[in-house]
Write a protein that binds this DNA or RNA. Structure first.
Lengths: 188, 188
DNA sequence: AATTCTATACCGTCCAGCCGGTACAGTAAA
DNA sequence: TTTACTGTACCGGCTGGACGGTATAGAATT
């Protein structure tokens, strides 16, 4: 109920946007407030401290992750394929949450890191249940992580342009082929 | 010449250490100076500004990268194998430089990002020259990136303990098997 | 005594958090 | 239907502390 972009929501997405585009250092309370079209005091009304703001972001991340798990589990092409496909940054709400949180995690925040670890663990379980082999699962996870890592490192223009790695756009289809190849002959 | 741990070197590695263990926010000039057993003034004597300090770190990274390229090119097991093996964090000087720089890159520093992009490009060329197929090369790179990303995210105790992913230690041998598997049948 | 290096005191800026206010909507006694 | 009161949403100035950088005086090495 009442799901227009409330001030609170605007603040949260503004925080994400600033983290993604300008890094954690630029994401000051004032800057976030300004980007959300709210005063600093207004922001502080919704989030009592910067830590609370971060907690809000983590909560959002967790909620979106739950949805992602569900979609992953019922994907017709399987969890592994789903993971690789969705790991290339495409501007989803979830994508943005992840990259924003990643920026924070590098900073120092323990809460964010913990959330990440937990989400990762679930992903791994899902992929393992799909492909069977632990080493292959790990490899697939790492590949997806690498994809996100690139998205987090090199700024993402605010649109939803295709992810690039060192200037070249990523060929997802080719990547999926490689993944299929490494699934074809699992070692113990 | 003169390669005892000079004050300058100590400052640089202290900076890296703080970046790795406590994040960029904690790596203040005073904290770095203290960790290096030097006063703030002493630090500023060697590096005129924080930016200069970062440049020093980037320079070190570039120099170590050159050595790594050489070792990679002449590795008996090939570039791809070398890359995967050395991507699991093992506490090397180079490892530490990379992770430290990674922390900074997330912050906002353009210089660091640029250096990263260049190093990455060279790695990619080397791996491509080894495995032939672009998609496979990309996959191998991403896999290695994922490994480093984990090292950067979850703090690394100051020793040289084996890298862990979500609590489990990484089985490099198994990973190399998977890589070998995906090299065995490259699709166009 | 000159150069190299170290230590300390200090300044300006920036930022998180605080606080005293404003606006307004509901509500309920008169 | 006015008046008084309460709670929610939001504003913007202020402050105290931290941090980057400067100045400068002193110690050690040559």
């Amino acid at each position: 109920m009442t799901n227009q972009p409330s001030a609170r929501d605007r603040v949260l997405t503004a925080y994400e946007e600033l983290l993604i585009n300008d890094g954690p250092r630029a994401a000051t309370l004032e800057a976030v407030a300004a980007a959300a079209g709210v005063s600093k005091g207004g922001l502080l009304y919704h989030f009592k401290s910067k830590e609370a703001l971060t907690e809000g972001l983590v909560l959002k991340l967790r909620e979106l992750a739950e949805l992602d798990f569900a979609a992953m589990a019922k994907d017709p092409l399987g969890c592994a394929s789903y993971y690789v496909r969705t790991s290339v940054f495409s501007g989803t709400t979830f994508d943005r949450s992840i990259v924003a949180a990643m920026r924070l995690a590098q900073g120092e925040d323990g809460t964010v890191r913990k959330a990440f670890a937990e989400v990762h663990a679930t992903w791994y379980k899902l992929i393992l249940s799909d492909v069977g082999d632990p080493a292959v699962s790990r490899a697939i996870m790492l590949l997806g992580d690498g994809l996100y890592y690139h998205a987090a490192l090199f700024g993402i223009a605010s649109g939803s342009e295709p992810t690039t790695v060192d200037g070249e756009s990523v060929d997802v289809a080719a990547l999926l082929n490689v993944v299929a190849q490494m699934r074809s002959g699992p070692r113990s």
